[in-house]
Structure formats: C-alpha cells, structure tokens
C-alpha cells in the first residue's frame, strides 16, 4: 500500500496580526510549524500502514525551508519525504497547488492520499478535493473515524454539521481528516535521528511533467486583491456594580436587543 500524506508548513497563525494603522502584517518571531490538521493526517497514514503494510511518503510544496516540516514527519515515522520546489510554482492558488501536487503524486505513485482538512493560514480546505478531481479518484472529506480498513475498501465516518455519515469508498482514494480522527504521536528518538540523516527528495517542474500554463500564477484563477484588518469592536459597554446590578443591566440590554 503506497500511502501519501500531503502536508504544509504554516506560520503559527495565532501569532499573526495586522497593524490596523498601516495595514501591514506583524509576525515577528512567529514560528513555522506543520499545519496542525496535517499532523492528524500523518498519524492516520502511520496507522493505515500498520494495518495494511506499505510505506508512508510525506509530500509538501514550498521553498527549501519546508524541509524542516518533512523531517519532522520522518521523525514521527514516515518512511520518506518529497519536497516539491520550483520558482515556477510561485503564486499558486488552491487550483494551481492542487494541479501541481496531484502531478507529483502521480509521479510518485499512490493508493491512499491523506490531507489535513485545511491549512490554518488559508483555511480554504480546497486543495485536497481539487487534487482528487485532477487524479480522477474519489475523495471523502472530514474523515473523523475509520470503521473498516481493507486494501480495496475503506469505510469511514465523515463528520457533518449534525452527526456523521458512514461512507464506503473504493481505493485509490483521497481522504481529508479532522482532529477527531486520532491523537498525533510525538516524534520518537530513533525517528529524530533518522530524520537528521534522511535525504529529502526534491522534485521540480520538469520532474513531474506539469504544463507551465497550469503552474503558479498562470495556473491560478484567483488573486488576492488586498488584505486588511478585521473590524474591531467599537461599542464596548462595561457593566459595573454588584453581581446583582451587573446581572440586572445585562438583562435590560438583552431585552432591548429583543433576545428575551
């Protein structure tokens, strides 16, 4: 079973801010991490490998420093890592990213592809399903549990707003996973030592047979027009007094808002 886990190195978004005066980003000292949802995808990959045998390959697209994320995945137990890196990929939106990633996945070979449900910097949740489309394979998004694992068929729970669906899918398949699926393991010491020594395989545009017109900017239908700070609350009221007085004021406010 050839299992591919797609990951992304992201800034720890909780730390990213925008300066409302200048409309520029403030991200001093914000560390780069593996997208948290992708950790669950890695764990799922390792779990599927333990059930079905085979190998786990982690794949990311990004600049050379994204190697750190790949090494971390190896230290958790992934067998090999591939970095997709090329100037031609610059400026990719989700469509171009999915095109590029799916071309790489086809080059590497695959049975099961795993992605985190979304990346915490963009929060789009689109690359996974778009990849499945490019690869012409089924996908199941928001996988929260494996009910049955077979080489040819997976039965999973897909989390919906109110409950879940039990979905059976043939393999090959792409799954995007949510936090409920598992608890990602920490690296192991042997894994860390292996990661240190591992050679990260690099693939560029010519290696994966992509067409230039579908890459990077040329392949990205969407554009970021501008970025700005979300509106701040302007009308804060502080309710003071004894707990009784505070409660009374709040009730009055709720009444005036027609909430009660």
């Amino acid at each position: 079973m050839k299992i591919i886990v797609c990951i992304k190195q992201v800034p720890d978004t909780a730390e990213v801010r925008i300066n409302p005066e200048t409309n520029t980003l403030i991200r001093d000292g914000v560390p780069s991490i593996i997208n948290p949802f992708d950790l669950h995808a890695i764990e799922a990959g390792l779990h599927l490998k333990s059930e079905l045998g085979g190998t786990v390959t982690v794949l990311t697209m990004g600049p050379p420093q994204a190697e750190d994320a790949l090494r971390e995945a190896i230290s958790m137990g992934a067998d090999e890592a591939v970095l997709l890196t090329d100037r031609a990929f610059a400026g990719s939106d989700t469509l171009a990213t999915a095109y590029t990633m799916s071309s790489a996945v086809r080059t590497i070979g695959f049975d099961i592809i795993l992605c985190g449900k979304q990346a915490i910097d963009g929060d789009t949740a689109q690359v996974g399903p778009e990849m499945a489309e490019f690869l012409n394979i089924p996908h199941v998004a928001y996988v929260g549990k494996f009910e049955e694992i077979n080489a040819g068929m997976l039965r999973v729970q897909r989390l919906m707003d109110e409950g879940y669906d039990v979905v059976e899918t043939s393999v090959p398949v792409l799954l995007t996973v949510v936090k409920e699926l598992n608890q990602p393991r920490l690296p192991s010491l042997k894994g860390k030592m292996k990661a240190k020594k591992s050679v990260i395989k690099k693939l560029t545009h010519p290696d994966i047979g992509t067409e230039e017109k579908n890459l990077g900017l040329a392949g990205s239908p969407t554009q970021v027009k501008n970025i700005f700070a979300p509106e701040a609350k302007k009308d804060r009221k502080v309710l003071t007094g004894t707990p009784g007085e505070q409660a009374a004021q709040l009730i009055e406010e709720l009444k005036s808002l027609k909430c009660i």
Partner: peptide
C-alpha cells in the same frame, strides 16, 4: 489566518 486578517 484564523480570522486575524481579511482578504479580498
């Protein structure tokens, strides 16, 4: 970025 930034 988790709602810290809006983009058009």
């Amino acid at each position: 970025f988790g709602g810290n930034i809006m983009a058009t």
